[in-house]
Amino acid sequence: MAKSANDVWGAIFAATNIYPAAMPILITGIRVTSRDGVTAGSIREITFGNGT
Rank of each mutant, 00 (worst) to 15 (best):
V38R: 11
F13E: 06
T47L: 13
V8W: 11
G41M: 05
A5V: 10
I30T: 04
T52I: 14
T39V: 14
I25S: 05
I43W: 00
G10D: 12
I30Y: 02
E45S: 11
G49Q: 11
D7H: 13
T33A: 09
I27Y: 03
E45Y: 10
A40C: 07
G37V: 02
P20S: 07
G10A: 12
L26T: 05
A14N: 12
A2C: 00
P20N: 06
A11F: 11
I27L: 06
F48Q: 06
G37C: 04
T33R: 04
Y19G: 01
G49I: 06
A5I: 10
G29I: 00
D7G: 03
V8H: 07
R44I: 05
A21P: 01
I18E: 11
M23Q: 08
N6Y: 15
W9H: 14
R35C: 08
R44A: 14
S42M: 01
V38W: 09
R44F: 15
A5G: 08
I12P: 02
A11K: 13
A21N: 12
S34L: 12
G37A: 10
A21T: 10
I27Q: 04
A14L: 09
P24E: 04
I30W: 02
S4G: 11
G29W: 02
A11G: 15
A5F: 09
T52P: 03
V8K: 11
I46S: 01
F13H: 12
A15M: 05
D36W: 00
D7Y: 14
G49S: 10
M1T: 03
I43S: 03
T47K: 13
R35F: 12
G10R: 10
N6T: 15
R31E: 12
M1Q: 00
I12Y: 10
V38I: 15
T33C: 04
A40I: 11
T28S: 06
A2E: 00
A22N: 09
S4W: 08
A15G: 08
P20H: 02
S34V: 05
G29H: 01
R35Q: 07
I43R: 00
R44K: 12
G41C: 07
T39N: 13
T16P: 01
T39D: 08
D7K: 13
I30E: 01
T33E: 11
G29T: 03
V38N: 10
R35P: 01
T39W: 07
I27E: 00
V32A: 07
T16M: 04
A22T: 11
P20G: 05
